[in-house]
Design a protein around this nucleic acid. Structure first.
Length: 198
DNA sequence: CTCACGATTGGA
DNA sequence: CCAATCGTGAGC
């Protein structure tokens, strides 16, 4: 077990540089009772300062404050009043920038996933809202650092065995936006079943 | 204080 | 195609 945990300072770079590098890495969710759910990151999107689609484009507010915080911390927000979206803050303090984690390929199906959804294992975390549901991530996790803790926590690990070219990725435009739709800051693993849309 | 809206999703 | 559902923030 030599899972290499990604240190928070690794995220102190532009989001558009980090987003593609996160493909193939593993997001780990650790619970209070010791249970762990792991998910391969298969789809990401970058948001940065000066980008009209970025939540921090206009100014810092209570909702997006963590986006202006330290790299390697989380920015979690509620969308459409019913789903949460998970972002990893990037770049430097006061520079609103983050990578939205859009889909994961889970290593196991959590107990709380309803029977109906178990029929499509690859779809359980294929979308930013579904991903947070599956990993039980909500606003209470906004602002926390990506660091293993004795109590509940979340972190990311590099791939175990780096096999060059084994993970072919695709770069395209982001989804569900009304502004910045032309910016090609979405990446996903080619042909992966858990990608939200292709 | 009011109100339109959203980096989504599931169902008609 | 459309409704669900509600915290947020802009505007009065």
């Amino acid at each position: 077990m030599s899972h290499l945990i990604i240190p928070t300072h690794w995220f102190s770079r532009p989001a558009a540089e980090i987003a593609p590098e996160l493909l193939g890495c593993t997001l780990v969710r650790h619970f209070e009772d010791g249970q762990r759910i792991r998910g391969l990151i298969v789809e990401t999107e970058a948001y940065a300062a000066g980008d009209p689609a970025c939540h921090g484009y206009r100014k810092k507010t209570p909702r997006n404050a963590s986006m202006f915080g330290s790299a390697g911390h989380l920015y979690v927000y509620l969308i459409y009043g019913m789903y949460y979206c998970l972002n990893i803050v990037t770049d430097h303090v006061d520079v609103p920038s983050a990578v939205l984690i859009r889909a994961l390929a889970l290593d196991q199906i959590p107990d709380w996933i309803p029977a109906k959804k178990r029929a499509q294992p690859h779809r359980i975390a294929s979308g930013p809202g579904l991903l947070c549901q599956a990993m039980r991530i909500d606003r209470s996790h906004d602002g926390i650092p990506l660091i293993p803790q004795a109590h509940e926590s979340i972190w990311v690990e590099f791939p175990d065995h780096q096999q060059p070219n084994s993970l072919e990725s695709v770069q395209t435009t982001r989804i569900g936006l009304k502004q910045g739709t032309e910016i090609p800051w979405r990446w996903y693993l080619k042909d992966h079943r858990s990608v939200s849309r292709w």
